[in-house]
Amino acid sequence: MAISRIAFGTKEEATHPAALRAALSEFICTFIFVFSGQGSGLAFSKLTGREATTPASLIASALAHAFSLVVAVSVGANISGGHVNPAVTFGVFFGGKITLVQGLMYWIAQLLGSTFACLVLLFCTGGLPTGTLGLSGINTTQGLVLEVAMTFGLVLTVFATAIDPKKGSLGTISPLAIGFIVGANILAGAPFDGASMNPAVSFGPALVSWSWENQWVYWAGPLAGAAVAALTYELFFRPLIQEQLVADRGTEG
């Protein structure tokens, strides 16, 4: 069972050069992702003189987030795994793939990367406020379930294409698959709750703008969705994959 493989790690792990490089990678990759995603919204508002709440801005936001996430995941894939998201890190930890110490280092790096991206945008745009996520026409329970559902799809995609030991050629296109599911979820969920799927995406703008309304939804929903996705893959899909691997080795022998 996946939960039986959860490891806490050691304090020495926190100062290991490889762990520090991985954390730096998460900082940089999250910066890239949030800078482009938030920047696209600011650019749209500046060019149109309106808030980024139109169908055109929705498509632009989905494309900007999808493209930048493909790049961010690709950059970090061979260094840190390219999580770029505390929810993904939590799912990977819950699936027994990284230790708690490493996961906490990733979280700190991701939250700092998001915050730094928003501060740079604030400076470069002459003080334009970064957009904070909020609920529109739905209550907190609906927003929570929406975040759970969207993050479930995202983390399940991560496990299937980036973590699965039998991913084969899917491993080469995993950044595309991950970027596409985020872009698609933004098209589906952004008009209702901003489509976070990523606590770092909501945390950085909230900290810089000091606006924390319903922030818990953007933590509880993604973390719960990630945990369910990790358990689903490890309990229902992983045994079938391992059986196939054994069968393949038997055939080769």
Results as ranks from 00 to 15, higher is better:
Arg5Glu: 15
Ala177Lys: 03
Glu147Leu: 06
Val92Lys: 04
Val158Gly: 05
Thr232Val: 09
Ile173Cys: 02
Ala87Cys: 11
Ala247His: 11
Gly49Leu: 04
Gly168Ile: 01
Glu147Gln: 12
Ser45Tyr: 04
Leu69Asp: 07
Ala226Gly: 13
Ala87Lys: 07
Gly95Ile: 00
Leu133Ile: 12
Phe116Met: 14
Cys118Gln: 03
Gly134Trp: 01
Thr251Ile: 10
Phe116Lys: 02
Ala64Asp: 08
Ser136Ile: 11
Ala60Asn: 14
Leu135Asn: 08
Arg5Lys: 15
Pro165Asn: 10
Gly127Glu: 03
Val71Cys: 11
Val145Phe: 14
Phe67Ile: 15
Tyr106Val: 07
Ser114Glu: 08
Gly91Arg: 07
Gly194His: 08
His83Phe: 09
Val145Leu: 15
Ala229Ile: 00
Pro239Arg: 05
Pro129Met: 09
Gly171Ile: 01
Ala77Pro: 10
Phe31Gln: 02
Val182Met: 13
Ser80Asp: 01
Tyr106Arg: 07
Lys11Cys: 10
Val208Ile: 08
Leu176Trp: 11
Glu213Lys: 14
Gln38Arg: 01
Lys167Val: 10
Cys118Pro: 04
Ile178His: 02
Ala227Arg: 00
Ala18Asp: 12
Val34Gln: 05
Ile6Phe: 05
Leu133Gly: 04
Ile98Tyr: 03
Gly81Thr: 00
Ala7His: 13
Cys124Leu: 15
Pro205Ala: 07
Phe116Thr: 15
Leu154Phe: 15
Ala190Gly: 06
